[in-house]
């Protein structure tokens, strides 16, 4: 479960981001010390068509790519539009702002402070993870998801 004392914020951009821009942005963001957890949000890009007469066919999409962030490979599953972050403290936000600025030269972005990730395990989380759930996972992904989080080495 997320500690309620940890502040959260989100980076919202004027446009949905290309994988190259996402990679550049994330590499700037992960260089900022004090980020605990991060979620990439956006409309999903499935590998196969999920609905309609073309159901089951491969769904090649130029926005679904593997990008390199920090020391990890990361396969994008969404067309990134919003980045949710959980921070160590509020002092990280100005540093985040400064890290994002050089990436968005052609269009605008803003950082909102608020509560964007789940703070308590829901009934579904309890069914999936049980009473001794890994607290870092709560609120990061849908409980039915089989994928695991990508762990980037801290730079403290």
């Amino acid at each position: 479960m997320t500690e309620t004392t940890f502040p959260q914020c989100r980076i919202v951009t004027e446009r949905l981001l290309n994988p190259e821009t996402t990679e550049r942005l994330l590499n700037h963001v992960v260089s900022v010390p004090g980020i605990r957890r991060m979620v990439l949000n956006g409309p999903r890009l499935p590998a196969t068509v999920t609905y309609g007469p073309a159901k089951g066919l491969a769904n090649p999409h130029t926005m679904r790519k593997t990008i390199h962030v920090g020391d990890q490979e990361l396969e994008l599953q969404v067309h990134v539009g919003t980045i949710l972050l959980e921070l160590e403290n509020r002092e990280v936000i100005p540093a985040l702002q400064a890290a994002c600025k050089p990436v968005f030269t052609d269009y605008s972005f803003y950082i909102q402070e608020g509560r964007f990730m789940k703070t308590d395990p829901s009934l579904t989380d309890y069914c999936k993870y049980g009473p001794d759930a890994d607290k870092t996972m709560i609120g990061l992904a849908d409980p039915s998801s089989k994928s695991r989080p990508v762990i980037l080495q801290g730079n403290k």
């Binding site: 446009r15 949905l16 821009t21 090649p60 999409h61 926005m63 067309h79």
Partner: peptide, 15 residues
């Protein structure tokens, strides 16, 4: 109702 992508195209899950 989604934001456009960087190329100014509307989002399409099936591209």
């Amino acid at each position: 109702s989604l934001r456009l992508d960087e190329n100014g195209m509307m989002f399409d899950m099936l591209q």
